[in-house]
Design a binder for these strands. Structure first.
Lengths: 210, 210
DNA sequence: GTCTATAGGGGGATAGAC
DNA sequence: GTCTATCCCCCTATAGAC
């Protein structure tokens, strides 16, 4: 490995610094409440450089939004289409992966979902989300399980909604649940990590209910 | 009933008109993206009147935010403390009530949860949320059910999180799920209303799982 | 109470030196 | 590529007439 490659890992370019700063600020505050000055400060650069590299706040935002949603859906599709895992294993993988992922970036879900709401015509319809998910192996395995009477709920969308609800919502409503319970952040995090094991058990029971 | 009371029901005062307009716009766009001009236009009044009645955008927002959160928690506490209903019935009531409620105001959940996130020190700690919920009959009934081995999950917070996740999250992620499924709004609404019956069944099964 | 007109400030974007 | 200085629009809030 050359020196220059080593350096490249540590020292990021100015463009990358701005993008990472923008990501952090946008995730936390959302588009409207973010000022380009906040991003510049976070990146440790001057405001003018932001426009030099990205032309406008909106273009910078669109780029980050696209990367975020694409990344999220790509990972999802990869898990749901894994040829080597059963339906149950996929549930486990989704719970485990996303709980770890969102723990590191707790603002991503509410960021994505708020911004998609202002924007839904623009972004979502450009991505091949529907095919990726609806024709996934996950859905086929669900249909098989229904045919074999191993699952009672015939609608795969309920299945997926339930899984994502149980995984994602506790993060979104974290301040509320901490307020209700009086748990501090560490304790609440522990509770959420318990769910990596619990959610697969719950999902299994739910889907056999009648 | 006098004429004046009849009129009062139909013709709202200017103050109320502004507040309702503000509620609609804030729910839809959030605090930062809302302009006082939008509110004035929505209310059909002049911009200056907003400040005449409410002093500032922030004060108007705080009032609406407080009413919204208070209303939400008050209803929740009322259901969870109902002396005449069993634990199972309370699950049914929560699902049924909130699915109807959020169907009429679909932006409330993401509005509340986003704005609470920017604000958590301010608002939540002023309300007696913790006592209302943690000491509710709902939680006592849960503990009894655990003691009688009718429920395997001993943590009532998981119980409540799961219930609210299944009820609320599909609304929050509605654009995403419509994008995935290709359902139109009417079809998606039908799907959500199915959940009034399904969620109690699912919750029952989940909580007996092991 | 309700309006028009405007003050005042903040924020996105650019010009131009280095 | 990076900075300082500045433009200019838009938004909140208020002054003052009616």
């Amino acid at each position: 490995m050359t020196k220059s490659r080593e350096v490249k890992v540590v020292d990021t370019t100015t463009e990358e610094k701005i993008k990472e700063a923008a990501r952090a600020v946008f995730y936390k505050k959302g588009y409207a409440a973010t000022r380009t000055r906040d991003i510049a400060e976070e990146a440790g650069i001057n405001l003018a450089l932001l426009n030099y590299y990205f032309r406008s706040k909106e273009k910078l935002f669109d780029m980050i939004m696209l990367e975020t949603v694409t990344g999220f859906m790509h990972t999802m599709a990869t898990i749901l289409n894994n040829e080597k895992s059963t339906l149950e294993k996929k549930v486990e993988l989704v719970a485990s992966h996303y709980i770890d992922f969102i723990s590191k970036e707790p603002n991503i879900p509410i960021f994505m979902l708020s911004e998609i709401r202002n924007n839904s015509d623009g972004l979502l319809k450009k991505l091949p989300i529907r095919q990726l998910i609806m024709q996934s192996l996950f859905f086929k395995q669900h249909q098989e399980a229904v045919a074999k009477r191993k699952i009672t709920e015939p609608n795969p969308l309920h299945f997926l909604m339930n899984l994502l609800s149980l995984v994602v919502f506790p993060f979104i409503a974290q301040p509320l649940f901490q307020g209700i319970s009086g748990l501090n952040e560490t304790q609440f995090n522990k509770l959420i990590h318990e769910r990596k094991k619990l959610i697969p058990i719950w999902i299994k029971a739910m889907m056999k209910a009648k």
